[in-house]
């Protein structure tokens, strides 16, 4: 028996919108820790790891570990039927081949339940090693989204370089080149508007902009984004989910042949 009641149902709606472009089908894993997902895109270039901790739910019952295979576009279709202020409850019985999403309006005058068929998905979990990153950049998520969108109108790849000067996003294409430098800026009115760069050593890596743009679908989940870079490792683009957990996107670099 599984019953997870999330008062801020809009978070789950935003999570689905953030990952459904990258991943078609995925197993949601439910355990005492929380509601989680790990999945790669079909070409195995990007990986998404989601965690919504059990403490973040108003009610969290998960009698035994359960893995539920879902088509994310179908799940998104159902969650779009929930109002932004609705409370969402996810329910499943042991051994059942369906999951139920219950939507309650804030004043309890409308209650809807949507039952979705589950699917069998063969998926392997990858071990993500704890890494010491050479550089960690925290910046406003909207600013990062803007940069990715702007650069993708010029080129297909972005070179992200972190030096003492700041973080530089560069691209090149048929029509020309573009460089955007963001300097560390802690003197802002609100902490979420700051750009903070922690650098152990300079790092420069190349990535496909198509995936970066897809990650920025998570922008509505968090005011800030954290980009962690090490040479020879996938970049981590992390959006924290208020008091509950995170979505982390890992993207494999492009390497000189």
């Amino acid at each position: 028996m599984l019953e997870l009641r999330l008062v801020q149902g809009s978070l789950l709606k935003k999570v689905l919108e953030a990952i459904r472009e990258l991943v078609n089908d995925a197993n949601f894993d439910c355990s005492a820790t929380g509601f989680s997902l790990q999945a790669m895109d079909s070409s195995h270039v990007a990986l998404v790891a989601l965690l919504l901790r059990s403490e973040g739910f108003e009610h969290y019952r998960c009698d035994r570990n359960l893995s539920m295979g879902m088509n994310l576009n179908n799940m998104a279709k159902m969650l779009r039927c929930a109002g932004n202020d609705d409370i969402i409850t996810i329910k499943a019985d042991d051994g059942s081949d369906t999951v139920t999403f219950m939507f309650e309006s804030p004043n309890q005058d409308k209650i809807a339940d949507f039952e979705m068929k589950l699917m069998d998905i063969d998926s392997e979990h990858l071990g993500i090693p704890d890494a010491e990153y050479h550089a960690i950049v925290r910046m406003p998520s909207a600013e990062f989204a803007r940069i990715c969108k702007d650069l993708s109108s010029i080129g297909d790849t972005v070179v992200i370089s972190v030096t003492k000067e700041g973080v530089k996003f560069s691209t090149a294409g048929d029509i020309g080149t573009a460089n955007i430098v963001c300097r560390q800026n802690k003197t802002v009115d609100k902490p979420e508007e700051a750009t903070v760069i922690e650098m152990q050593e300079p790092v420069s890596l190349t990535f496909a902009l198509r995936y970066m743009n897809s990650f920025t679908k998570a922008t509505p989940l968090s005011e800030t984004v954290t980009i962690s870079l090490s040479s020879e490792l996938p970049v981590v683009v992390e959006y924290k989910i208020a008091d509950m957990g995170y979505i982390r996107f890992y993207l494999a670099p492009k390497i000189e042949e």
Binding site: M40, S43, H44, V45, A46, L47, E124, H125, L126, G127, I128, P129, T157, T206, A208, E232, L233, P234, Y250, A252, P253, K254, I255, E256, E257
Partner: peptide, 14 residues
């Protein structure tokens, strides 16, 4: 040219 690597090159299967 640059070659796209995959996640499985870096993270092992459990």
């Amino acid at each position: 040219g640059c070659k796209q690597t995959t996640i499985t090159k870096f993270f092992g299967r459990l």
